[in-house]
């Protein structure tokens, strides 16, 4: 068993129930909750970052990029399926999807 899943003895715990390393929830997998999955289509994406801001799971991973004019900007790199719970908010709120001609995020049933 991986050490991070080993339950600790009381002597090993920080005082007062404290979690000394806030943000460590990234180690916790919530992707197993998914029954549907968003699939990001880079070619149709306009990089508006709506999916990034609305994603409750912080599952849209960004990378450094530039606009056509060369201005530095953040761009969608991929979806972190370790955390994505498959709620579908990203696909629902995607302005490309809303226009109805193309999809920048597809939302499909998970195949198990």
């Amino acid at each position: 068993m991986k050490d991070k899943y080993r339950l600790k003895d009381w002597q090993e715990l920080a005082i007062g129930g404290v979690v000394p390393d806030g943000g460590n929830s990234v180690d916790y997998e919530t992707g197993t909750w998914r029954t549907s999955r968003p699939i990001w289509n880079a070619e149709n994406c306009i990089n508006c970052l709506n999916c990034w801001v609305f994603c409750p799971e912080d599952a849209f991973i960004l990378k450094d990029g530039t606009t056509k004019k060369g201005t530095p900007r953040k761009e969608i790199e991929r979806i972190n399926y370790y955390h994505c719970k498959g709620c579908g908010l990203c696909a629902k709120e995607c302005p490309v999807n809303k226009k109805g001609k193309k999809t920048a995020i597809d939302y499909v049933k998970e195949e198990h």
């Binding site: 929830s25 990234v26 997998e29 919530t30 799971e57 912080d58 370790y82």
Partner: peptide, 8 residues
């Protein structure tokens, strides 16, 4: 961070 357990 992600990995929290709010409802989907």
């Amino acid at each position: 961070a992600g990995g929290h357990r709010m409802c989907a």
